[in-house]
Computed example of a mutant assay.
Amino acid sequence: MNHAFDRATLSPVQVVLPQARLPRDAVRVDAYARSLSRLPHVTRVETATGNYSAGSRVQPSSADPSYSSPAGLWAAVITDVGPETGEGANVVRAVRGVPAPVPALVGGAQAWLADLQDAISGHQLTALLVIATVTLALVGWYTRSIVLAAKALLTNALSLGATLGVMVLIFQDGYLHNWLGIEEVSGVTDTMAPVLILCVAFGLSMDYEILLLARTVEEHDRGVPTREAVARGIQHTARLFTASALIVIVVMSALATSGLVVLKAVGVSIAVAVLIDATIVRLLLVPALMVLLGRFNWWFPSTWRRARGRRPSGSPGPW
């Protein structure tokens, strides 16, 4: 279909003009179709007044009567990009920006993708701010350290960045796709996959972070120096990390056997996220960073510290 046929014709951007009528609006529809045909990545426009390309009408009065009905007119905007690509979504946004003779409705696979991307990006900043704020507040309250809360957020972001990079490398760029049973690489990433992977992987990463910090904070509250507290925290949680990570990796690997590429992407990516987080990040990067920070790990505003009722390190009593 891609190489032997005009596949783009099967997935045009569909522009519906429900209030347009012929011959009353023929001139305005003609001008509108010419404008659409000038847009980047648009190869031609087919509608009731003819076929258009590069701003010119190449065939008057389309032979297909289905472009006109008592309900109105519609136009098929044929592109040279795939309907599942970012360029296809950009074509839809450009089509919606062209003044129409009557209120226009734009649909099709490209429009669905553009609307999905806009819905996600429209709330993306709010969602990230909520996650960051709640994470900083809860981890800061629990550890009584602004530095540890900020470190937890930054290291988790680093782990997620590596995970999304691996996902793009495999499922978009095609590395190792033969090993995973992917017959053909599409060159694009499903829009929903990064969102799902980000939420699940962030939750798992923060779970591991809290387990390590909890034990380290307990040791430090007993008066143990930071370096030794970190070492003891790892000593008591490393086996738990390993067992938990293995369970998640095995479960996610089951998704990797699916015939659906989206499920493969989710399974492989989350398994990689857990592997990276439970080894490189949680057992190497985080402890090394805490040791380097030393006493700065435990910085907390004095007014907040009094409100929390914290006693000097090594003193018994509640936080």
Rank of each mutant, 00 (worst) to 15 (best):
M1W: 01
A4V: 09
A8S: 15
P12W: 06
Q19S: 14
R21M: 05
R24A: 10
D25V: 08
A26L: 11
D30Y: 04
Y32I: 08
S35C: 08
S37H: 04
L39P: 05
N51Y: 04
Y52G: 06
G55Y: 00
P60G: 15
S68A: 15
A75L: 14
A76F: 02
I78K: 11
E84L: 07
T85K: 03
T85V: 01
G86P: 01
V91Q: 04
A94D: 07
V95I: 02
P103G: 06
L105W: 10
V106G: 13
V106K: 11
G108E: 04
A111W: 08
A111K: 07
A114Y: 11
H123Y: 06
T126I: 01
I131T: 14
I131F: 13
I131C: 13
T133F: 12
L136F: 10
V139S: 04
G140S: 13
G140F: 06
Y142I: 05
T143R: 10
L148W: 03
L148R: 15
A149C: 04
K151D: 03
L153H: 07
L154C: 09
T155A: 13
N156M: 01
N156R: 00
L158G: 12
S159C: 12
D173Q: 15
N178D: 15
I182R: 02
A193P: 05
P194K: 07
L196P: 01
C199Q: 09
D207W: 01
V217P: 00
E218V: 00
D221P: 01
E228D: 12
E228G: 05
A231S: 11
R232K: 11
Q235W: 06
A238Y: 08
F241M: 05
T242E: 11
A243K: 05
V248A: 06
V248I: 12
V251S: 04
L255Y: 03
A256G: 14
L260W: 12
V262Q: 07
V266Q: 02
V266R: 02
I270N: 07
V272P: 03
V272L: 03
D277K: 03
L283N: 01
A288G: 12
A288M: 11
P301H: 03
T303M: 14
R308W: 15
R311I: 05
R311L: 12
S313E: 13
